[in-house]
């Protein structure tokens, strides 16, 4: 998935802050992107919420959209759903412009879970799904099975007002799955879910992805999505600052790998000296620890040097740059 770059207009170098250029890093070939965003700008009065975004998402991809509050994610989401027209540029979903009359038919193939899912307290869980099924033109008879799929089996007759936040979130997810959509937009989908439910949620997403469903999700919990998305886009100040797989973005940002080496106090000085000749960016000691930071391409040399220290090393931990590090490295 990471070997071929997109066409040249999307594969330019990272230029943080440039509205015209997206930083596309080792992106899969988009033979027929299900989402195609070109030069999209959205203004609210004098405020530019989205500023020249280009983006392609391929069919069957699990795509993440991350950014600070106010980065433009929600506005981009709303435009991709056809809820908001771009001030400039064009968005095509399944080759259909999001502002065209024909987009209504496309919506039947889209599932959407908003950030703050608001359902109707007076309706039961089953009635809620049946209501949205009718709106979507879907046979409501499959609603009970859908409840079971999101872990809400046996709650169909309960009113939504009795549901916890996590249960509402699951019900919202079930609503998004109505009609077997080919494209899912999930805005902060794990908000309010407990760890077990989050695991279940991502297992469902993996199963959907295996069926060819394209998923676009936004999240503030970067640690949660870093190993779960195929690619992601980092947004800041209305612009896509970088797009690519987490690994490719890590390489591009070139953040250091950090080793924490625990040694006995007696060995501290000798270990410090032995590691001093490494191609490391920094070596620092602290009580019974030696902290080594090196460039990713020097990682193996550092490990080899540490191996030579033998039993003088009591413990070792290696910390690769997290998505959070990458995010701050790019967005700031």
């Amino acid at each position: 998935m990471e070997s071929v770059l997109l066409p040249s207009h999307e594969s330019a170098d990272i230029r943080v802050g440039s509205p015209a250029v997206n930083a596309e890093v080792a992106t899969p070939v988009a033979v027929a992107p299900i989402i195609r965003v070109r030069g999209v700008v959205r203004d609210f009065g004098a405020v530019r919420a989205v500023d020249g975004v280009d983006l392609d998402v391929s069919g069957g991809e699990l795509f993440g959209l991350i950014g600070h509050n106010g980065a433009g994610k929600s506005t981009l989401f709303r435009m991709m759903l056809g809820l908001l027209a771009p001030s400039r540029g064009e968005i095509r979903i399944d080759a259909c412009p999001s502002t065209s009359r024909g987009f209504r038919a496309v919506r039947r193939r889209i599932g959407f879970l908003p950030e703050n899912v608001v359902l109707y307290d007076n309706l039961s869980a089953l009635e809620t799904l049946q209501f949205f099924a009718r709106l979507k033109g879907v046979d409501p008879s499959g609603c009970a099975a859908l409840l079971a799929r999101v872990g809400l089996a046996g709650t169909g007759r309960r009113r939504v007002r009795e549901f916890s936040k996590g249960m509402r979130q699951r019900l919202g997810f079930a609503q998004a799955l109505l009609g077997r959509p080919r494209l899912l937009f999930l805005d902060e989908p794990t908000s309010g879910l407990d760890p077990e439910a989050i695991r279940h949620f991502y297992a469902t997403l993996r199963a959907l992805r295996a069926e060819g469903v394209t998923v676009v999700l936004s999240s503030h919990i970067l640690a949660e999505i870093q190993d779960r998305v195929d690619r992601l886009a980092i947004m800041a100040r209305g612009r896509v600052q970088a797009i690519g797989s987490v690994r490719a973005l890590r390489e591009r940002v070139d953040l250091p790998v950090r080793f924490e080496v625990r040694v006995s106090a007696a060995d501290l000085a000798s270990v410090r000296e032995a590691l001093g000749h490494l191609p490391a960016l920094s070596v620092a000691t602290n009580d019974d620890h030696v902290a080594v930071e090196c460039r990713p391409d020097a990682k193996l040399a550092v490990i080899a040097a540490l191996a030579r220290l033998g039993d003088r090393i009591l413990d070792l931990s290696v910390r690769e740059p997290s998505l959070e590090d990458v995010f701050f490295g790019i967005s700031e």
Partner: peptide
């Protein structure tokens, strides 16, 4: 104001 309008309008409904 409740935030449910976007969900309704994301359906195939005008």
């Amino acid at each position: 104001e409740r935030g449910s309008l976007d969900l309704l309008l994301s359906m195939p409904i005008t």
